[in-house]
């Protein structure tokens, strides 16, 4: 069953405080977190989180289209190294 709308999105409070502090400071920092359950809210856009996947912290650079998803969705717990073929990477 979906979460009730009246509750609003769930976000761990310390994450909001830290994200705002990093944004205000302008430093290039990655915020380590174990909180995979936290929803990505608009205040997080532009911040990079290091989301724990059970073994290491996966950097997650938050962009607008990620709002509403959970942090854990972007930190896979299984790694697969496929063939490179014609795969491209874009420097954002």
């Amino acid at each position: 069953m979906a979460r009730s709308i009246w509750k609003g999105p769930f976000v761990d409070g310390f994450l909001i405080k830290k994200a705002e502090a990093v944004k205000d400071s302008g430093r290039k920092e990655i915020i380590k977190t174990w909180s995979r359950r936290s929803t990505i809210i608009p205040q997080f856009v532009g911040v990079t989180f290091g989301v724990y996947n059970g073994k290491k912290f996966i950097p997650v650079y938050v962009t607008e289209h990620m709002i509403g998803h959970k942090l854990g969705e972007f930190s896979a717990t299984r790694t697969y190294y496929g063939h490179t073929a014609d795969k491209k990477a874009k420097r954002g």
Partner: peptide
């Protein structure tokens, strides 16, 4: 590269 510095949230 400019290596990122990491900050902890849960230790505060």
């Amino acid at each position: 590269l400019e290596l990122p510095s990491w900050v902890d949230t849960e230790k505060e």
